[in-house]
Design a protein around this nucleic acid. Sequence first.
DNA 1: GTGGTCTAGACCACA
DNA 2: GTGGTCTAGACCACA
Lengths: 134, 134, 134, 134
Amino acid sequence: MEFDPAVPIWLQLVDEFKRRIAMGEWGLGQRINGVRDLAAEFGVNPNTVQRALAELDREGLSHSERTTGRYVTDHPDQVAHLRTKTATRAADDYVARAKGAGLRLPEALDLAEKRWTVHDADPTAPDSKATNHD
Amino acid sequence: MEFDPAVPIWLQLVDEFKRRIAMGEWGLGQRINGVRDLAAEFGVNPNTVQRALAELDREGLSHSERTTGRYVTDHPDQVAHLRTKTATRAADDYVARAKGAGLRLPEALDLAEKRWTVHDADPTAPDSKATNHD
Amino acid sequence: MEFDPAVPIWLQLVDEFKRRIAMGEWGLGQRINGVRDLAAEFGVNPNTVQRALAELDREGLSHSERTTGRYVTDHPDQVAHLRTKTATRAADDYVARAKGAGLRLPEALDLAEKRWTVHDADPTAPDSKATNHD
Amino acid sequence: MEFDPAVPIWLQLVDEFKRRIAMGEWGLGQRINGVRDLAAEFGVNPNTVQRALAELDREGLSHSERTTGRYVTDHPDQVAHLRTKTATRAADDYVARAKGAGLRLPEALDLAEKRWTVHDADPTAPDSKATNHD
DNA sequence: GTGGTCTAGACCACA
DNA sequence: GTGGTCTAGACCACA
């Protein structure tokens, strides 16, 4: 995974971890790899991972059993809530930015559909967060 | 205008200025208010405005005439390009995040439409950048 | 019994055992259930129970007879002392925190009385250790 | 200020900062000393102070203006809420512990009153957090 | 100057 | 082994 140098790594980790939970890659109640393992996986300092996981805990998406490890929440509602919240925020951002670019609703929906298929074809390319100018 | 404390102010100004150009609030070839005026309008340091305007210049959306002031570009293509670029990026972001939340295309389009009408009703509320937690 | 994940379990067990002795649930000279039984009752590791009981021994509130088991002290003074010490400490903590919140004595007493009746009605709810944020 | 080795320093800092806000030592809207200054004052690492202040921010009791410094909230309601919350929690803790020691309401109130005056005479002595045993 | 991030590394209690 | 804390110190953008 590549990090956007303009955004704190721990925040990007939070997003990535949430994505994994939302997608079920980290299942309900499942054990999360140790801080040191995750740090190795992402090539960052364990402290940075720790900070991201603390945020997950704080939002109720995980909890740590001090000696056995950390676990994804086993409340399906929490995960459902995460999905809705994430999607709604993304939609709100899109709406605001599309309107700011002068789009009307039909145009905005057409564009989203078009980019969806582009993303299907090549999911890696267009992560606009990384390139801020041009 | 409210600024998100987590994002550099000058960047938020760039976005706002681009929005004004895209929306035609700042028309083609029109003179842009002086740095001090804009600084007063936004309640920020003139240096910060200066930096944002320099970025605008750099992207060819404005140019500064040393004696008479700074003007919006008079090339309609520039503005058209700005709109497309902005909208496409917004759409790409939305697609990535919606997929990350487990949405399928029809759900993503439905949600965008729903939030569009919500935003029509109350354009101030849901700027997701501002409220980072919960 | 619920454990506060932020506090070592053995310490919470010590508090619980002391409470039982202070309340007379574990009577003077009475035999205490074996480590394995208690571990099962609380759903924790026997080592953890062992550590808590050792602390009880150390404070003279219990003593272990190698062959027959562990017994609550049969000195009424020990238990009386435990009660006083516990209550005084609790009061001192309350005083310090109430003053830190800007309360005066009458307000502090009123509040304690009010919360006492609330706790009478629902003894489970407000264990402030458990809910650390907000 | 002395730190209890059994409790994370950053948490004790949070409590101390909240106390200062609740007592008005740090007034509404007032600037808070820089992270480095506070670190020197408490003899801890700036990172530790930073962590405590981030928690204050998160609870809406302060906010940081990235370049000019950090300020106490200027909403009196926030501070009032802090006071109530702190006091109620303290009372709930006291009630639970007093009951656990076998006290009845009148005894609990008498004791609190007695310790209040003791604390008035010597506010430094009886911080029970520091001495966990005996 | 300010707040904020990140790392390397030591250290701790707990189980 | 686990999560968690703390430090020293470097570094960054912003204003």
